[in-house]
Simulated assay, not measured.
Amino acid sequence: MGLTDLPLLSQIKGRLSWLDERQRVVAQNVANSDTPGYVARDLQQPTDFAAAMARGQGVQMMRTSAMHIAPQGQVARFESKAAPDSETTLDGNSVVVEEQMLKMAESRMAYDAAIGFYQKSMQMLRMAARKPGAA
């Protein structure tokens, strides 16, 4: 069992992937802020437990024996949806750069928090793996 197989680290990895994809979508919105008819997009954050269970996220089969059938690998896929900002210009563009910058800053803070949590988790694992009495 590798470190990436631990549920905690897997969850952090999934969160970082989501934040990375959101940064990409926000950057695309900013790049198209002058494109006529462009509608801003954003990622929906999977926060509803019941909805996540209905989509099959969060529950994964584990293979505890070589005799078991290997579970199919699940790849995290995020879908961006139209999320118009508070204003739409006369040419149909719905990107408000200030709102996109707020989303970018929010994603950056969440990314930093996830990285900090990952680092603390790794420190805890290293401390647990050390020989007793070792400094």
Rank of each mutant, 00 (worst) to 15 (best):
K81Q: 14
E79R: 12
S94L: 01
P84L: 04
Q72C: 00
A70D: 14
A76R: 06
D91V: 05
K81I: 15
V75M: 07
M67P: 00
E87L: 13
K81S: 13
H68L: 08
S94T: 09
D91I: 06
D85E: 08
P84V: 04
V95A: 04
A70P: 10
A83F: 01
V97N: 04
V95F: 01
S86V: 05
V97S: 05
I69H: 10
M101Y: 06
I69P: 09
V97D: 01
G73N: 08
P71V: 00
V95T: 04
H68T: 12
E79Q: 13
T88C: 01
S94E: 01
F78K: 03
L90S: 13
M67T: 12
V75Y: 02
T89D: 12
K81F: 04
V97K: 05
P71G: 07
R77Q: 15
S94F: 01
D85V: 08
V96F: 11
K81N: 11
G73L: 06
Q74Y: 07
T88P: 00
A76Q: 13
A83P: 01
S86I: 03
R77L: 07
T89S: 14
A83S: 13
G92V: 02
D85C: 12
T88A: 07
P71L: 00
M101R: 10
R77G: 09
T89G: 10
H68M: 15
M101S: 02
